[in-house]
Amino acid sequence: MRPSQHVAEAILALPADRVRRVAIDGVDGAGKTHFADALGVELNVRGAKVIRVSADGFLNPPRTRHRRGRDSPEGFYRDSYDYGRMVRLLLDPLSPGGNREYIREVYDVRREREVRRLPELAADDAILVLDGIFVHRDELVRYWDYSVWLEVPFEVSVPRAAKRGVGIKEEDPYALKNLRYVEGQRLYMAECRPRTRASVVIDNADLANPVLLD
């Protein structure tokens, strides 16, 4: 059984009397989008109503992201995302007691500009699948009914992220230009221990052959 199948079955075993909220976490280049898309397919095949969202749709503009300096690891960790709007516009509406009217994004990072989206209404048994870095932070961890940590060493994740052409540019994980990203992730892992907070850990160093660890 592929890890995405295992995760899909675990999610579908959760009570379906409300929106089930799922997070896919990992460092930049861990393969979060790839895994979340595969999970969405597995859930769709089983008849689920999937809401696919990226945390990058709630990035802050550059003036906020870089207010501690363009090379600041702490700035990368603490200032990249607008968690207030993510919670207010996406997570609270999809939580028990919410009205299920959510907005999936407020920012386009490729164009570096705000976007306006009309609210959408989630089915009462929908499944939110959100991928993004830092999603086991204290502000967010209570929202997840199920979460995944993708375990990938920086020696693999950084070159993979560099080839994507957004954010990380250098393939060398020890390059000075990557200090912001690598050390920012280390700060997150030390402070929040996402591996221990996740429902399941998957070795995703080989995108074609992910391995369920625990």
Rank of each mutant, 00 (worst) to 15 (best):
P3F: 11
Q5Y: 12
Q5W: 11
Q5T: 15
H6D: 05
A8H: 10
E9M: 06
L12W: 07
A16L: 06
A16G: 15
D17S: 05
D17Q: 05
R18F: 02
V22C: 15
A23H: 11
V27P: 03
D28F: 01
D28V: 12
G31V: 12
K32S: 08
T33C: 10
H34P: 06
F35A: 06
A36R: 05
A36Y: 02
A36D: 03
D37L: 15
L39D: 03
G47M: 09
K49A: 12
V50I: 01
I51N: 07
D56Y: 13
D56S: 09
G57S: 06
N60M: 13
R63P: 00
R63A: 05
T64R: 08
H66Q: 12
E74N: 10
F76M: 10
Y81A: 04
Y83H: 06
V87R: 07
V87T: 08
L91N: 08
L91V: 14
D92N: 13
P96W: 07
G97W: 07
G98E: 07
R100K: 09
Y102L: 05
Y102G: 00
I103H: 10
R104P: 11
V109K: 00
R110C: 01
E112Y: 06
E112T: 13
V115P: 00
L118F: 07
L118V: 04
L118C: 03
E120V: 15
L121Q: 07
A123E: 08
D124K: 11
D124M: 05
A126W: 01
A126P: 01
I127D: 01
I127F: 03
V129A: 07
L130D: 08
D131E: 15
D131Q: 09
G132C: 13
I133A: 12
F134P: 01
D138Y: 12
E139C: 02
L140E: 01
R142H: 12
W144V: 03
W144Q: 05
D145L: 14
Y146A: 14
S147F: 15
V148D: 04
W149V: 07
L150T: 01
L150D: 00
E151H: 10
P153L: 02
E155Q: 15
V156L: 09
S157L: 04
V158F: 11
A162N: 06
K163F: 02
K163R: 14
G167W: 09
K169S: 15
E171W: 08
D172M: 07
D172R: 10
P173H: 12
N178V: 13
R180E: 03
G184T: 00
G184D: 00
Q185P: 09
L187E: 11
Y188I: 03
A190W: 02
C192G: 00
T196V: 15
R197M: 01
V200T: 14
A205V: 04
L207C: 03
N209Q: 14
P210S: 14
L213H: 15
